[in-house]
């Protein structure tokens, strides 16, 4: 029995959608791990948020200053800002201008 083009196409799509994404995410996360290990060989801490995530965290803190978790959020925000300002190697894609504009909350 010869397979139809439709079946072969579906098989290819399925392999790509499942094994393709699984392999991509596995390789990506392991490479990210290697990068973090490399950074931590040179310094004792590193940035913990991407520019977009840190901006969202800051916005939330400013909008919810009395939230029960606001202090914890401030601490996490400030730790990231301190790490960015006092370390040379950064994990996320931060520009010097972006780091200069950051301040603690």
């Amino acid at each position: 029995m010869a397979l139809t083009a439709e079946v072969i196409g579906m098989l290819a799509f399925t392999l790509l959608a499942f094994w393709g994404i699984a392999t991509w995410s596995l390789v990506r996360t392991l490479r990210q791990e290697d990068r973090k290990v490399e950074i931590l060989k040179h310094q004792d801490r590193m940035d913990t948020y991407s520019p977009e995530s840190l901006a969202e965290l800051r916005e939330w803190i400013e909008n919810n200053p009395n939230d029960p978790l606001a202090d914890e959020a401030r601490q996490q925000h400030n730790e990231c800002v301190d790490a960015l300002k006092h370390t040379d190697m950064h994990y996320y894609d931060w520009s010097s201008e972006e780091i200069d504009r950051l301040d603690r909350v």
Binding site: R28, T29, Q32, K36, T48, Y49, S50, E52, S53, E56, L57, W60, D67, L69, E72, A73, Q76
Partner: peptide, 14 residues
């Protein structure tokens, strides 16, 4: 709260 404090902290994707 969880998204900002844990999911996106050290995250490989936003």
């Amino acid at each position: 709260r969880l998204r900002l404090l844990a999911v996106n902290q050290n995250a490989g994707i936003h």
